[in-house]
């Protein structure tokens, strides 16, 4: 129950009550945006937990993390390739 799930805001239901409709893994449900800074916007990604948007997901940061991950992957592949190319070694 403690899991938060990434969801996309698809519709603002009631700006005064701070409710919006979010698509959570293919299901649409009304969530409260009372914990978000400022107004929720359609298209924004948020983390939903027990019916509340707990915070926004930072797209820029997500990209950076993925970039870092893929660089780690690439560095490893390169090293592997070098090892393969070096043959069995001297000893």
């Amino acid at each position: 129950m403690c899991l938060g799930i990434p969801a996309q805001i698809v519709e603002i239901v009631d700006p005064r009550a701070k409710t919006a409709k979010a698509e959570i893994g293919g299901v649409r449900r009304i969530v409260s945006c009372a914990l978000l800074e400022g107004e929720a916007q359609v298209g924004e990604w948020v983390l939903v937990h027990v019916g509340f948007a707990l915070d926004r997901l930072d797209e820029e940061q997500a990209r950076e993390t993925l970039q870092l991950l893929s660089e780690m992957g690439e560095a490893y592949e390169r090293e592997q390739a070098q090892i393969r190319a070096s043959g069995e070694g001297a000893a």
Binding site: P6, W45, L57, E59, A62, R63, L66, L69, S70, M72, G73, A75, Y76, E77, Q80
Partner: peptide
């Protein structure tokens, strides 16, 4: 961007494991 699938690549997971 879906914030889920991108973080599940099996290939990258193996690369990270090897780096570990």
């Amino acid at each position: 961007m879906r914030y889920v699938d991108e973080f599940r690549s099996g290939e990258l997971a193996r690369a990270l494991a090897a780096e570990l």
